[in-house]
């Protein structure tokens, strides 16, 4: 059975009862349709158009009928919690796929919204699970992914890179980073990139060059990835958003694997998790110190 009717009913009820002021979900794009097949390499962010799905911002119960959910709803709506315009409409409800759910749990762990300010209209796959508090969302996430999930293809590519000499790795990454235009779509699409003033926008001193040149692009891509270490839930929003198709998921997956391996951290499963960076353990790996 299509999940949409109960999703719409729940959304309408929450709005009607005044439990939330806003529901963020997905709607079908008025233009509709997938359009003609896009040639390989064409100008299109892979998930951008999202198979004709667009974000929907519903404030009135009678508009809840616009909501849809299916496998094409791939945009990570948790990123909207960064927008002051959206935060001003809390408490709110978000239609949460598994990926969005993990982002919300991660944001809860980082105290990015007050208790009771957010409800999830949760999905597992395309099955609607109902209205969930963050703790329930975390339980769902743990249930859905008892083992860390890593894209095996990315694992293969990382292993390939690891086997190369450092200089070849540097050249390979430099060639990719050279295409970065510093549009910051990666940052914008990421729910975890919520700093009000990003480090690349701090200019006294200018730690990260804003020039779309080798040094600035390297520093930017390193710092973006590093600031997500132990926090990134591998939703893929940054990589999907990148117009230039930079392999950002290689960086994110690598760091997530390192966080798991070195510190037994898996982001987005525990709303009470302590931040990886910002805490420490006397038993942390000391082997790389002389």
């Amino acid at each position: 059975m299509s999940p949409t009717p109960s999703l719409r009913e729940d959304a309408a009820r929450l709005l009607r009862e005044g439990r939330v002021k806003l529901v963020i979900g997905y709607r079908a794009h008025a233009g509709g349709g997938q359009g003609p097949a896009v040639p390989e390499g064409a100008c299109r962010a892979p998930l951008a158009g999202g198979g004709g799905r667009r974000p929907a911002f519903i404030e009135e119960a009678h508009r809840a009928g616009e909501l849809v959910f299916d496998g094409a709803c791939s945009q990570n709506l948790a990123a909207y919690l960064k927008k002051p315009e959206v935060r001003a409409r809390m408490p709110l409800a978000i239609v949460a796929s598994e990926a969005v759910g993990r982002s919300l749990v991660s944001l809860a762990a980082e105290s990015q919204f007050a208790q009771g300010a957010l409800l999830a209209l949760a999905f597992r796959g395309e099955r609607y699970e109902g209205v969930k508090e963050v703790e329930e969302l975390a339980a769902l996430a743990r249930e859905a992914a008892p083992e860390p999930r890593r894209d095996p293809d990315i694992g293969r590519r990382l292993a390939e890179l690891a086997a190369w000499p450092a200089q070849r790795r540097a050249e390979w990454w430099s060639a990719r980073f050279s295409r970065c235009t510093r549009c910051y779509a990666c940052r914008a699409a990421c729910p975890g990139c919520y700093c009000q003033r990003c480090v690349t926008e701090r200019n006294v001193p200018q730690w990260v060059s804003t020039a779309a040149l080798g040094h600035g692009n390297y520093a930017w891509n390193m710092i973006r990835a590093f600031h997500q270490a132990g926090r990134c839930t591998l939703c893929g929003a940054c990589a999907s958003a990148c117009p230039q198709g930079l392999p950002l998921m290689l960086l994110n997956t690598f760091l997530a694997a390192q966080a798991a391996e070195q510190f037994d951290v898996e982001a987005g499963l525990d709303p009470a998790a302590k931040p990886l960076i910002g805490t420490w353990d006397p038993e942390d790996d000391n082997s790389f110190f002389t």
Partner: peptide, 11 residues
């Protein structure tokens, strides 16, 4: 409302 404030479109 859907705009996340990046420069992808402008660039």
């Amino acid at each position: 409302l859907p705009c996340l404030g990046c420069a992808a479109c402008a660039y």
